[in-house]
Simulated scan of single mutants.
Amino acid sequence: MHGLGNDFVVIDARDAAIPAMTPAVARALGDRRTGVGFDQLILLEPSATHDFRVRFFNADGSEAGACGNGSRAVALLHGAPAMVETQGGTLRLEPFEGGARVDMGSPRFEWDAIPLAYPMDTFAMPVGWESLAGPMAVNVGNPHVIFFVEDADAVELDRLGPLIEHDPLFPERVNVNVASLAGPDHLKLRVWERGAGLTRACGTGACATAVAAVRRGLVKSPVRVTLPGGDLAIAWEPGSTILMSGPAVESFRGSFRWEDYS
């Protein structure tokens, strides 16, 4: 499946036992030359407290707390409203024709909720990496830093993204967002995803960036966020949860032998 070109392998293990998913298996499946290939792997499992549980693995095998585009794919696959358990908290999914709306929960702004290595103002962080400086940090199930720039396309994100992702300031690494203002309710965004690199779209990045832009008074909600793969609609006001709406698509179904990747 994919959401705006951000692509996923979805394994539905809600009604069938499978071997344990490990970072090595996820990494092997994620190899685009010798595996199946994906930005994230999504594993659906039973839950004792929710309709089901969803786990997200990056292409490097690391596990993420949330995935916005992936959550819309899950909603479309499930085909009905659901409350799902994730590492980053409870999500409410509501599919519609060609996509879904997801309540992503409330953003977190405390330095230790991002988390950062030491206390710091997350509204305008007193740090910088070359031309990128003064970001805001937001946790929306996984950690993001957001830089507002004149031209998002002009930033060497393929070079600066990994430097920032792996900076010791971020003990759990971080997703790196560069955004430029395109209108009073419109942002242009590119994202370097933790564990996945440059992707065509990032749902949690769109959420975090819209929240940051609303907090700084740059845009009004709802916000149209344009990524390389297309547009998402993000609605958020201070004190409320984040509502993300956008498309999702099933590309194909297939099978593999588990022993080939373990």
Rank of each mutant, 00 (worst) to 15 (best):
A100T: 13
I11Y: 05
R92L: 14
S106P: 15
P222M: 11
L4A: 08
E97R: 02
V211F: 05
A28P: 09
L44V: 02
H144A: 09
S240T: 12
G246N: 09
R72E: 14
A206T: 05
G195V: 01
L189A: 10
S262P: 06
M1N: 14
T209K: 07
F96L: 14
V178C: 14
M244V: 10
G217A: 07
K188C: 10
L181A: 04
R72G: 13
A208W: 09
P115L: 00
F52S: 02
A152S: 13
G70S: 07
L93W: 12
A26I: 00
E259N: 15
S251V: 15
G98T: 10
P115Y: 03
P238L: 08
H78E: 12
L243W: 11
L44N: 05
R215K: 12
P143Y: 08
A82I: 07
T34A: 09
R200M: 15
L4C: 14
S255N: 03
G203I: 06
I242P: 09
P115W: 09
L116H: 02
G254R: 08
E97Q: 05
V249F: 15
L43W: 02
E85C: 08
T34R: 09
T204C: 04
T209D: 12
E237W: 11
A64D: 11
V211C: 07
R55A: 00
E85F: 03
L163K: 06
F148Q: 10
G61E: 01
F96T: 13
V219K: 08
S71A: 15
T241L: 07
L157V: 04
A17P: 00
D15Q: 15
V140F: 11
V9C: 01
G141S: 06
R159H: 09
G99F: 07
V174R: 03
F147C: 13
L181C: 04
A64W: 10
N69A: 05
L163N: 01
E259V: 12
E193L: 12
G30V: 04
F38M: 05
E130P: 06
A152G: 06
F57Q: 02
